[in-house]
C-alpha cells in the first residue's frame, strides 16, 4: 500500500506557517487568528455550504490572508438562512452571516475580514450555539 509520500512536504509547510505566526505574534497568543466556521448539517450541505467553504479557501489564498482557520460546524438552528457562516475576528465576538453565496464571500473578506466593517446578512446574536 503506497502511503502518501508527499505528506512529508507538510513538514516544510509547518516550518513556514510557524515562522509566519511567530513573526506576526511576537510572543502573543497563537489563538489570535481569524476563525471561519461554515455550518454543515443536512440543511447547510443541501444549500451549498461546501461550495462556500471552497470559495473562502480560494479567495483567502488569492488575497494572501494567512492567519485564518477554516472549519466546519453542525446545525446552528438557522436552517432558513443556510448557508450560514460564523466569523470570529481576533478579540471580537463571533458574528453569524446568513444566506451566504459566492458574491457574499468576496464581500465578507473585502469588508468585514479586512477592515472590520459590518455588512448585510447578520443573524442577530441572541442565538445559542447548539454544538
Amino acid at each position: 500500500m503506497a502511503k502518501v509520500q508527499s505528506l512529508a512536504e507538510l513538514k516544510k509547510l509547518r516550518e513556514r506557517i510557524k515562522s509566519n505566526i511567530d513573526l506576526r505574534e511576537k510572543g502573543n497568543n497563537i489563538e489570535e487568528m481569524i476563525l471561519i466556521k461554515v455550518a454543515m448539517a443536512t440543511c447547510g450541505i443541501a444549500a451549498g455550504a461546501k461550495t462556500i467553504m471552497n470559495s473562502f479557501i480560494d479567495e483567502l489564498k488569492k488575497e494572501k490572508i494567512e492567519n485564518v482557520v477554516v472549519t466546519q460546524t453542525g446545525c446552528m438552528g438557522y436552517c432558513h438562512s443556510e448557508p450560514t457562516v460564523e466569523i470570529t475576528l481576533p478579540g471580537k465576538e463571533g458574528i453569524i452571516f446568513g444566506n451566504v453565496d459566492e458574491k457574499k464571500v468576496k464581500e465578507l473578506i473585502e469588508r468585514y475580514i479586512k477592515s472590520g466593517e459590518l455588512v448585510d446578512g447578520i443573524i442577530p446574536n441572541n442565538y445559542k450555539t447548539i454544538e
Binding site: 509547518r14 506557517i17 487568528m33 477554516v70
Partner: peptide, 14 residues
C-alpha cells in the same frame, strides 16, 4: 507532520 502548535484548520494546511 504538523505537530501541536499549528491549528489543523489553518488555511495553508487545509
Amino acid at each position: 507532520e504538523i505537530g501541536d502548535d499549528i491549528p489543523l484548520g489553518h488555511i495553508d494546511v487545509v
